[in-house]
Design a protein around this nucleic acid. Structure first.
Length: 670
DNA sequence: CGGGTTTGTCATGCT
DNA sequence: ACAGCATGACAAACC
């Protein structure tokens, strides 16, 4: 029970201190459940910074850098660092290494999907431009995408031949490459210029293309998982098998009454839910046809490159595309990214913006974090101990410095206390003053005044938290006091002066000093208290002491040592509190920094969404039917298939799928 | 004089 | 068993 009591009281004390110091909410559970030892130790168990200390050994302790001298636990130290880094990594998206390639395809009159060989039908007249930007870094990806493309084609060939046959039968091929379909951003919309060339001027790209694309993929993935506004899973509703076949089965014989000659692009190699291109328009005129128009992959055209282009920055919400297509693409082009740019995300962004503008005080930061998500584990950066040293940059201040100060002062304390002990005076309340004054046995060489290290003013000046200690509890007798106490001959003093003297002595001498005098102890309390036990026993053996004297001497020694212990204990308490204060400050700093990083990330997220939207509009606007007319966004939409290809589907079907997707995630969330 | 602070002391547990 | 340390609790002194 007692240990339990101690445990609880200690823990509660620390916990209370921590909470009282924290202006903001700190998820203590996070600390407790983490493997970061220091705070957990402080709260739950023997505190590393608040533990019993062998002060005689402290003078050998470290300078305080790196590891708390009282908890030299390298395993915990490195474990904490590793975990901390992992936790911090949680705040960043785990970007899949998926990639998207755009394919151009055209259909030839014979009904075969041209481009079934990457190097043949799919070859883009201007594909060289695409490949130019592919660059060395994309070499591997390119080959991968080609492989994926081949697979796609195989799927098409195996499953979709009837459709493709229908399509081609029905639609005269209008072979224009995607590159032709996408204009440069500076060109008037609708011009049949190279679609990708402006996007593929990778030389200007200040970004890491792959990173950008990964970010984009993350956005989409996150959107599919969290926002649930996409219709990405439509393809997953299909029975196991080729999703494309499923799509075809949805509208196997529905004729597309136009000759849909798709300059199709697909995103090859993308295994993620990728239906961001599925629009959300519900009230659009329903096309009679529900036929899916698979966008057959072309060869090495890579949207990676496309997205990597800085030109995209200028493509945000580009002007109306396809100016020549009066009847279709226009301002009312549905926002294919409605799901991506959902309000929730924007709210977050707005909140973060607000937070930034307002300077991120701790309370706001805390509230913001609560509003966002629960990755507050990032504040795990419990800076209390060695673990905090891992906290990157400049915030790794606390523990080392605090530990050093602690250990330094502790060692100083020990050294001083070994030099001498607190002087004690007799207890006036139990002794006859005159008897005390007549006491003998004080040896001058032992009457030097000693004080505890942190009672030394010079030391106090180094300990700011003790600066306010201005009390003058002069229990300790100064040498002068001792001398003066002995000087006046008792016989020469009047009664009144004796009383005054007694008062003075009472104030100058400790109670044990008085007791020692009263009992005629032949050596100083300093010796009694501070001599090593062997020397102490040796000293006792030199004198013939009564039992009462021996008892008093042992009491003096016990009290004197306990007095120092109490002082050390209190000092440690102060150090602990100060360390906690520093820890809180560090945690708040880290928290603010993490929130700032989060804001930055959300901003880049938003930018990427805009880029995707722009690209959608670009691609869609450049698609032409067999008559060279653009498709109406009210009737068709682009949609990513599960296998990475891009489909041009009737909007009705897209809407259906979108609705289906809206229901499904809700269920999944519960 | 009351309240807060500092300090000494005791009791207790632990090593 | 003893010495010593740590610490909660209490009280006295002090401000």
């Amino acid at each position: 029970m007692l240990s339990l009591k101690k445990y609880l009281t200690e823990g509660l004390l620390q916990f209370t201190i921590l909470l009282s110091l924290i202006g903001v909410r700190v998820d203590v559970d996070t600390y407790l459940t983490s493997q970061l030892p220091p705070l957990r130790e402080i709260i739950l168990g023997p505190s590393s910074a608040y533990t019993q200390t062998q002060f005689h050994n402290l003078r050998n302790t470290l300078d305080g850098y790196g590891i708390h001298p009282k908890s030299i636990d390298l395993d915990n130290y490195f474990t904490a660092r590793r975990l901390l880094s992992q936790v911090r990594a949680l705040d960043r998206f785990q970007v899949p290494t998926t990639e998207v390639n755009a394919w151009l395809v055209h259909r030839d009159p014979e009904g075969s999907v041209s481009g079934s060989q990457p190097s043949t039908g799919l070859a883009l007249e201007s594909s060289s431009g695409l490949q130019d930007v592919t660059g060395p870094d994309n070499g591997v990806r390119e080959s991968e995408s080609e492989q994926g493309f081949s697979e796609d084609l195989e799927d098409l060939g195996a499953v979709a031949p009837p459709v493709s046959g229908d399509l081609t039968k029905e639609f005269p091929a209008d072979i224009s490459s995607l590159t032709e379909a996408v204009p440069s951003e500076s060109e008037p919309p609708g011009l049949q210029n190279n679609l990708l060339s402006p996007l593929l001027t990778g030389t200007e790209s200040p970004f890491d293309l792959e990173q950008q694309w990964q970010d984009l993929m993350s956005i989409m993935e996150m959107q599919a998982m969290e926002v649930n506004t996409s219709t990405s899973e439509i393809l997953y509703n299909a029975p196991p098998g080729d999703p494309l076949s499923t799509n075809y089965s949805l509208a196997p014989n529905t004729p597309i009454n136009q000759n849909v000659s798709l300059h199709q692009a697909s995103l090859g190699g993308c295994s993620q839910d990728f239906s961001i291109f599925s629009p959300e328009v519900e009230s659009l005129p329903v096309a009679s046809s529900s036929t899916l128009l698979p966008l057959v992959p072309s060869n090495s055209t890579s949207l990676n490159s496309t997205f990597g282009s800085t030109n995209l920055a200028g493509l945000f919400f580009p002007p109306q595309l396809n100016g020549t297509a009066n009847d279709t693409v226009g301002p009312d082009l549905p926002d294919p990214l409605g799901g991506l740019l959902d309000e929730a995300m924007l709210d977050e962004i707005s909140l973060m913006d607000l937070a930034i503008e307002e300077g991120f005080n701790s309370v706001q930061a805390s509230q913001l974090e609560e509003e966002f998500d629960s990755d507050s584990g990032l504040s795990l950066d419990s800076s209390h101990s060695p673990s905090s040293l891992s906290s990157s940059e400049g915030s790794s201040s606390s523990s080392s410095s605090s530990s050093s100060s602690s250990s330094a002062s502790s060692s100083a304390s020990s050294s001083f206390s070994e030099e001498g002990a607190v002087g004690y005076s007799s207890d006036s309340e139990t002794l006859d003053l005159e008897e005390a004054e007549g006491a003998v046995g004080y040896q001058p060489e032992y009457s030097k005044f000693c004080r505890m290290s942190y009672q030394d003013p010079s030391q106090l000046s180094c300990l700011p938290y003790l600066e306010h200690v201005g009390h003058n509890h002069t229990y300790n007798m100064a040498p002068s006091a001792l001398d003066s106490a002995d000087l006046p001959p008792p016989s020469t003093l009047k009664k009144g002066s004796k009383e005054k003297q007694a008062d003075f002595l009472d104030k100058q001498m400790s109670r044990d000093e008085h007791r020692a005098r009263a009992m005629k102890i032949p050596f100083t309390n300093d010796k009694i208290i501070n001599l090593p036990v062997e020397e102490f026993n040796e000293l006792l053996s030199k004198y013939q002491l009564s039992e009462a004297q021996l008892s008093l001497i042992r009491d003096i020694r016990r009290r004197g040592k306990n007095k120092m212990a109490a002082q050390n204990c209190r000092k440690r308490k102060l150090d602990t509190i100060l360390n906690l204060e520093r820890d809180v400050e560090d945690l708040q700093r880290d928290k603010a920094r993490l929130l700032r990083e989060k804001v930055e990330f959300l901003r880049s997220l938003r930018q990427m969404k805009q880029k995707v939207q722009s690209l959608y509009q670009e691609v869609f606007g450049r698609l032409r039917d067999e008559n060279g007319r653009p498709y109406s966004p009210s009737q068709y939409a682009l949609q990513y298939a599960g296998d990475g290809s891009v489909l041009l589907i009737p909007r009705t079907l897209a809407d259906q799928q979108a609705r289906r997707q809206e229901r499904k995630p809700k269920d999944r969330r519960k």
